[in-house]
Design a protein around this nucleic acid. Sequence first.
DNA 1: ATGAAAGCGCTAACAG
DNA 2: CTGTTAGCGCTTTCAT
Lengths: 342, 342
Amino acid sequence: MNLKQLSDILGLSPTTVSRALNGYPEVSEETRQRVLAAARAHNYRPSARAKALATGRSMAIGHVMPISSQHEMMNPVFADFVAGAAEVYAREGYEMLLSLVRDDDEERSYRELAARGSVDGIIVHAPRRGERRIRLLHELGLPFVVHGRASDERADYNWVDVNNRRAFRRATRFLLDLGHRRIALVNGIETMDFAIRRRAGYLEALAEAGVPADPRLMRADEMTEVYGHDSAREMLALEAPPTAFLVSSMITAIGVRRAAEEVGLRLGRDVSIVTHDDDLSYFRNGGDEPIFTATRSSVRDAGRIAAEVLIGVIRNPGAAPVHRMLEAELIVGQSTGPAPAG
Amino acid sequence: MNLKQLSDILGLSPTTVSRALNGYPEVSEETRQRVLAAARAHNYRPSARAKALATGRSMAIGHVMPISSQHEMMNPVFADFVAGAAEVYAREGYEMLLSLVRDDDEERSYRELAARGSVDGIIVHAPRRGERRIRLLHELGLPFVVHGRASDERADYNWVDVNNRRAFRRATRFLLDLGHRRIALVNGIETMDFAIRRRAGYLEALAEAGVPADPRLMRADEMTEVYGHDSAREMLALEAPPTAFLVSSMITAIGVRRAAEEVGLRLGRDVSIVTHDDDLSYFRNGGDEPIFTATRSSVRDAGRIAAEVLIGVIRNPGAAPVHRMLEAELIVGQSTGPAPAG
DNA sequence: ATGAAAGCGCTAACAG
DNA sequence: CTGTTAGCGCTTTCAT
């Protein structure tokens, strides 16, 4: 069933039917009702392709996720972010195009997306140090919102980000206040912007407290369970082991906890673990009884907000760049809880 | 840059340029080379929308993920599956459309996808008991492949599935062979097809060994860490607690482990945990030293295979339904390892 | 081997 | 308030 057929049935021109369906005011209310009823009755849906071609808007938004050629890790955070964004798209009539691109042909992929015109805008995921996509997208003239930021990009652009620096500064301070002096940082890969900011926050807090940073207590890698376990085991074997761990992801913190238990340390007594809780649906830190002390922010909310910002930008291309900073809260867990001073 | 402009530059008709670009044989080799060179030089990309409208094929595949109106959980497995599928799509020139639909307007969503013509085929995720999407998609005539199966659907259809029943039967047998007689099943929600099959495998193995199934040792819920923890705590408090746990997901198994440790049980001695390892990139069970004993299958492979099957179906609509059964292997972990008999 | 013309299904001036 | 016409960018007969 297409427009022409529907309009034939109604004895109207395709134009009038189109206008009625799209809510144009210059259609009599009676006609509109007739059209709406007929459309429903015949289960009519406009062809997305034809509509896109005619209007120049594809009503689709692209989510481009870099898959590193070296690290093939699929970010678990991605699923929840996308779920948040999808809510908004469903409400606003957008489709979501997912594109996983290897970073070695990243530029080609973005150029292609733009030239093929399959999306009206893009959400940029996982910005890294030396990020080149921002300039590229500006050049291509494709509206975009970055989830996170690119520290060394001086141009202005739309972003939605969690205040990672402040969150980690606060978490570090929390541990310092408890008396800890040897605090390990088990971070994500430090080419990722968020990891850079987290380390900055950690270092700031240490500096403020006059505690020197010890390179042996700082790790950065892909945030797997095994990584948490192995690096914790190594650090705990130092002559002066850490008394607390600040860990960039919940799953990695679980590995750290396993390592601590293996060497006979009791959580919340011999060692403290503080992590960041992305508040994922499948693995929430818990409300009543958090597993870990953690800084917490909702990835799903970030997805929702990013989608809303992007749609706003698409509708109003002239507007000034939008920046949305989400603050993380600190929640103190029971089982891993605040450890007594070093 | 569009076809017309490119053909003007070349002094050829759009027709010829189109033919050259799409590899039609009736173009002179010389012309083809000229066209190809010019296209590259001007960074020409055909408009996906125009092409779709003209050909009737959108070159896009839809992934439809149900979001339960009650349980808002975003399956962590989804991300890896999609990553596998994306590899194939990139290779074959398809785009990926992601659609998260609430189950209360599921039918509407599928009808819309079909009528709008935005996809050439669909991957159906998370089939459940009483699955209605299969009949619907058959009715709509949209090619599809189900990731998993629908136990109570008698019509034939394309599917790619892990042999969940056999995997859990094998895992249960493994525990029985070690001497365990009170084996708890911490399953996923048993409206999900995979959970139904896993329980079937578990019950089969018990029956074969003449061990009666105890309803108090069988749980089913969304597979979070907290669920694993809480249900394990409850079961461990029974007058006759389980000596082993068979857990449907790694993240839930972590919760079970936490519970066991809280009550002072030592893993691989006082209690055994066997789980299913979906072999996700961010949380692999480990090769050399698996954290848990587990049945293991690669979700990413499943995604790849499902995508390949679907593309085959789209290209060859007449063919007989394809069924691809993936077998899980049993890997014996060290830390949780084989526990001594009851 | 190349081109002209029609058409995919819709929207958007422009008329009336 | 409704209809006519052109056109979005491509593919695909049908001629030549």
